[in-house]
């Protein structure tokens, strides 16, 4: 009863108080110096260990918000100068470039980083820095297909693969980036044909996560899938007997070359914790950071003095498509239109 009286007495006066408390809860911690808010579009388990290392080394408390890449770009844009984010870390150069164009990121001057990471993997003004390279490859089930079955990505539209292909959904930044590169290489008509064939072949096997595509291929539910290369190695790390292998496409003479994208990082234009943010960038570009990033995710480190995992196809022997990463941003919207026109989900 007593409690009830308390409720009723303070009921109407309580509401603004409640809201005020909430506001304090939500914003109170913003002013502490040794804190860093990271918006991350990467799968949480792919980034958390590296951030934990950074936190242990520096004592900076890292707060992580994991979400979709595009969703986070939208969020940064909406939040504008009030954003809590200090750092935007994601897995697609097109989205990073888009964030730069929207002035959501700030140019950085970090000589060490510039020396370490080749200019092709950075924004022109260093608003974002590429950290690791990932190839968009075909994963195939070794019991159900041979490597010689596919030479080009476009082969996946062949009707002989009906119901045998697993693909990412239309919201996937990998797919959007991949289609952007295809569009630049082949033009709209070829890409449209390709996407329609892909849609027919994939039927219901459209996935939200690359790990699910690899899993589907490993189980034989699909014969081929399109994923970033490291998902294959991550799967093999836990299930070494899985009958899957990567197939780097478009290596034939005169071919487009494999599609390479980078995961990267940028410091937000309105970062409140600028120093720790720069420290995180420097850490991730350092030898130790690149090593952990690479080993953990089986990606290609972008520092040339850090070796990739020996299990990966050798980077130097691969040809990659000649579309500059920064161009992925302007190609994004038309690529999305193509994807939608094809009726992909």
């Amino acid at each position: 009863m007593n409690q009830f009286h308390f409720h009723s007495r303070s009921a109407w006066r309580g509401l603004p108080l409640l809201l005020a408390v909430l506001a304090v809860v939500a914003t109170a911690t913003a002013a502490e110096p040794d804190r860093l808010v990271v918006y991350s579009g990467r799968a949480e388990r792919l980034i958390k260990p590296v951030l934990d290392t950074f936190q242990a080394n520096t004592g900076v408390q890292v707060d992580l918000l994991s979400s979709g890449t595009t969703e986070l770009v939208n969020r940064l844009q909406t939040e504008g100068e009030r954003t809590q984010a200090d750092v935007f870390l994601t897995n697609d150069a097109g989205s990073l470039e888009r964030a730069r164009e929207l002035r959501l990121l700030q140019p950085l001057t970090l000589p060490d980083v510039e020396r370490a990471i080749p200019a092709t993997y950075r924004a022109a003004d260093n608003s974002w820095i590429g950290l690791s390279g990932r190839l968009w490859v075909v994963v195939y089930n070794k019991n159900l297909a041979k490597p010689s079955d596919v030479t080009s990505l476009l082969d996946l539209a062949d009707p002989k693969w009906k119901d045998k292909i697993a693909i990412p959904n239309a919201g996937s930044e990998y797919l959007q980036a991949g289609v952007s590169v295809l569009k630049a290489a082949y033009g709209d008509d070829r890409v449209r044909q390709f996407l329609q064939g892909l849609k027919a072949n994939a039927s219901t096997q459209v996935y939200g996560k690359s790990s699910q595509i690899v899993e589907a291929v490993a189980k034989g539910q699909a014969v081929l899938g399109i994923v970033n290369h490291y998902y294959i190695y991550r799967h093999l790390a836990t299930q070494p007997d899985a009958p899957i292998a990567p197939l780097v496409t478009d290596q034939q003479a005169g071919g487009m070359g494999a599609i390479l994208n980078v995961a990267g990082i940028g410091v937000t234009a309105h970062a409140r914790h600028l120093e720790p943010a720069k420290r995180l960038v420097a850490f991730l570009a350092s030898e130790a950071g690149q090593k952990q990033f690479a080993d953990l995710n089986k990606e290609y480190p972008l520092r040339s003095d850090v070796a990739a995992d020996p299990a990966l196809p050798e980077r130097k022997k691969l040809r990659t498509a000649a579309v500059p990463l920064a161009k992925l941003s302007e190609l994004r919207e038309p690529a999305m239109t193509l994807i939608e026109q094809a009726g992909l989900r």
Partner: peptide, 17 residues
């Protein structure tokens, strides 16, 4: 992964600018 209107709203919201 069954495409309904509600799911599509979410996908459009998170997948487009």
């Amino acid at each position: 992964r069954y495409q309904t209107l509600t799911y599509a709203v979410y996908q459009q919201l998170t997948g487009r600018y």
